[in-house]
Write a protein that binds this DNA or RNA. Structure first.
Lengths: 120, 120
DNA sequence: CTTTCATATGAGCATTTGTTCATATATAGT
DNA sequence: ACTATATATGAACAAATGCTCATATGAAAG
């Protein structure tokens, strides 16, 4: 048995050299692929999705979001921190209250694109 | 202390009745929100993202994908089942080999939209 | 029918994740 | 300074996730 890479080795590659080349060329930077996965990971939770849909309608404080979604203030706050870290929402303080809103239109575009796939 | 819902209660709602109404109207069905989160969950892993980017270039068998990505056949196969379950890829058997390819163009549209956000 | 090769799959395990609970911080009012 | 209210945050715990390893399935060739 000869030495081998981490990858298994089938009898032969079905893809030709030029396809391998093509894939390697088209492949985005490893870092971008990682970031992209991280981004989608944030969208991959229904609590966060629901928060974003609420914020589509209006800027809102933590407590109001919690009431609208029937969840605890703590749970919502934790998730808002996740959304904040990913730059999907921004906030504005007014006295004791903190108002959250969508960071930009990309958020909506991404969700719409996904929703199209889901509802078709 | 009076009885209360699952949700906490702040002194008063900042949002007005009509905003609550507006949010409830605009809110997609609970089921769709759940499905949407499930969909993004699938995109939320860099191995699956990389598989999809490889399949953008050409239909490919499990073993070739594994070699291209430097991962085991088992790991790739498991993830392909996840992608298959979500209808993001389809497959075609040819003898012992199984070729996978993208199920439709939505996949690309969703990834592109996300990539735009990441690379800007 | 047995062997071989490509793929699929179940169990096990370490890691990550989302929520709860308790508590800390920040701001305003008294 | 003390209290009350809105929000943030750390620890803990259960549930979900992604990989590995061993093994099963499926198809072609001998």
């Amino acid at each position: 048995m000869e030495d081998r890479n981490a990858a298994p080795r089938c009898e032969f590659l079905y893809v030709h050299e030029d396809v391998v080349e093509q894939v390697n060329q088209a492949m985005p930077q490893e870092e971008h692929l990682f970031d992209l996965a991280e981004l989608f990971k944030v969208f991959g939770d229904s609590t966060r999705i629901r928060i974003l849909y609420v914020l589509f309608e209006a800027e809102m404080c933590v407590c109001d979001i919690a009431q609208l979604l029937g969840m605890t203030q703590s749970a919502i706050s934790h998730q808002l921190q996740v959304l904040k870290k990913s730059k999907l929402v921004k906030y504005r303080r007014e006295g004791k209250t903190v108002f959250y809103s969508l960071a930009d239109d990309h958020v909506r575009a991404i969700l719409d694109q996904g929703m199209e796939h889901v509802t078709e």
